[in-house]
Amino acid sequence: MKIALFLPCYVDQFYPQVGVATLQLLQKLGCDVDFPLSQTCCGQPMANAGFEHLTQGCNDNFVRAFSGYDYVVAPSGSCVLHIKEHLHSTENEAEALRLRHCVYELSEFLTDILKVESLPARFPHRVGMHVSCHGQRGLKLSQMSELNAPGFSKPGALLAMVEGLELIELDRKDECCGFGGTFCVSEEAVSVKMGNDRIADHLRHGAEYIIGGDVSCLMHFEGLLRRQGSTVKVLHLAEILNSE
């Protein structure tokens, strides 16, 4: 089973520790992981701004970079959702369609493919889990609060395996953080207010850490927390699951 690690471009550049934690976690679980160096980006930044028609080069590059791997795993619900919904290739459409089906967000790869039942992780802290909208409502990583349907949570199931971790309940289970791609700058006022409200929900319930499956949400939180001089930290799910 050949697995390719796919890292969102901003994770590669600004949050390498998330990439390292994802890599180590997968290796710990016995996976043969490669990082194709020719990867760049999923194309979502352009597409969500209305310019999906400019993403063909990006798409073709993605297909070339990840062609032939059994699975593509990324520590990001948002990028994975974009690939699943929009990947096309001018050179090899069959491979693009195959890749759509074998690209996985980290937590769903662990629960659905590796069927992980225990982890050697320890994290003795009170943490709040912010589920990213694309991970949750797009990839259905956990049940959505709007629906009358049985509850479940893939990241939640994994966190339950972490020794000492105390998961707090939030007042609003799955409210958006307000990052939203270019929204975070084009609609700065609302974006910041949404982020601060989301953080306040975590703080009200005594979170020491805000964790999530998408670095984009976390980067938004971190920017706000640091500006406020808060001691609350953000961590990616992979970093918790890889902790010892």
Binding site: L7, Y10, V11, D12, Q13, F14, Y15, P16, Q17, G19, V20, F35, L37, C184, V185, S186, E188, V192, G195, M219, H220, E222, G223, L224, R226, R227
Partner: peptide, 17 residues
């Protein structure tokens, strides 16, 4: 607009790649 209310992420010594 990002910086109005948020700190920028700090660049690490090296990227993942």
């Amino acid at each position: 607009p990002w910086f109005d209310d948020r700190e920028m992420p700090t660049a690490p010594k090296e990227s993942f790649r």
